[in-house]
């Protein structure tokens, strides 16, 4: 058994249905929303499990699942490419990548618990998957960052390393890489959630070494060879928040940019408690986030903090619990955290 093969039979089916791996124009993979609906139908049908769809005729699927004939055809076409996906997976595995889906036991539990039906169906990654069990601190911010922001991100990265808390970040230029590098250089651990080019990224010798040393995990909800797109950069934000116990916004533009959008969404959905850097000259976005009930992490206080986890715990802002709009089906219901007043 391959140590990096985390796919169960159900996971393999889910991968075939939802990943763009080895797809052509004859059938497009199921989007997250579409899958959530299909998962519900599978769960409510006699088939019960995604793996049970493999080998069924389109006619039978339309009947049992109550889907349109077009959708049934699409399912059959997607599942038929198992042989080719097998070959592509083999290539990915041989390079040190792994893949795990939402129905597999090795899927990061925290991510599933936090994002629920919004958690990505498929994750590709490199490095030791089980490291993701550790609670991390999300450090987010814009690519262009001022001196104070840089110093803050660096200090925060070091503090995380000291407290043995992984930094969770997007691995992009600016805030992301400053915080991650500071944490890694101080002997800490980091999780990089990439929006694109995972396959190319892990070929960089310094990153590859950190992956081999079990200090770094890189992951992405997109195909490992996917190029950059704005949508993808936004879409991976929720994974960053979903893997973290707390999030810190170092600097955000106001009403624009990925950092702003992500932080607002995190506050609204309650993925995890959100802190924003506070100080005399923080960007307008930070100020607005503080107004929107992000908790404050003052620049002046960070330097002298000795117990980071404890400080976060005692400074979480209050929030209202969001009602569950779409009930969980195949996945188990997560335990909800309660915010402290």
């Amino acid at each position: 058994m391959d140590a990096r093969d985390f796919l169960t039979e159900d996971g393999r089916a889910l991968l075939l249905l939802c990943s763009t791996l080895a797809t052509d124009d004859t059938a497009s993979p199921f989007t997250l929303t579409e899958w959530n609906q299909l998962a519900r139908r599978i769960h409510d049908s006699p088939l019960q499990r995604p793996a049970a769809l493999v080998g069924q005729s389109a006619h039978a699927l339309a009947e049992t699942l109550g889907v349109t004939r077009d959708d049934a055809d699409r399912i059959v076409r997607l599942l038929e490419r198992g042989g080719r996906v097998a070959l592509e997976l083999e290539t990915l595995f041989s390079r040190g990548l792994w893949v795990v889906t939402r129905v597999d036991p090795h899927y990061p539990a925290k991510l599933r618990a936090t994002l629920k039906h919004q958690s990505p169906t498929v994750l590709f990654g490199a490095g030791t998957l089980s490291l993701l069990k550790r609670a991390g601190i999300a450090v987010v911010g814009s690519r262009n960052i001022d001196e104070a922001g840089t110093a803050f991100a660096q200090t925060l990265g070091c503090k995380c390393a000291e407290a043995s808390l992984p930094v969770v970040s997007g691995g992009a230029r600016g805030t992301d890489s400053i915080a991650m590098t500071a944490c890694l250089e101080a002997g800490g651990t980091a999780f990089g959630v990439l929006a694109d080019s995972l396959e190319r990224t892990i070929r960089q010798p310094d990153l590859r070494q950190l992956l081999l040393d079990e200090r770094l995990v890189l992951l992405t909800p997109y195909a490992p060879t996917a190029g950059f797109s704005v949508g993808a950069a936004m879409g991976r934000n929720k994974v960053i928040y979903g893997l973290a116990d707390y999030a810190v916004v170092v600097s955000s533009d106001l009403q624009k940019g990925g950092t702003w959008a992500g932080a607002v969404e995190a506050l609204r959905a309650g993925w995890c408690p959100v802190f924003a850097r506070d100080g005399h000259e923080v960007p307008a976005g930070n100020r607005k986030l503080l107004e929107l009930h992000a908790a404050a992490l003052p620049e002046t206080e960070l330097e002298s903090l000795s117990d980071l986890p404890h400080w976060f715990q005692t400074h979480v802002a209050s929030r209202e619990e969001q009602p569950e709009l779409l009930p969980m089906t195949v996945m188990e219901r997560p335990a909800k955290y309660r915010a402290k007043r």
């Binding site: 391959d2 493999v54 042989g83 097998a86 070959l87 997976l89 083999e90």
Partner: peptide
């Protein structure tokens, strides 16, 4: 060895 791994990922119906 690569073929073995491909076979492992192959759906049971092939």
């Amino acid at each position: 060895r690569r073929i073995v791994r491909v076979l492992r990922h192959l759906p049971a119906n092939v």
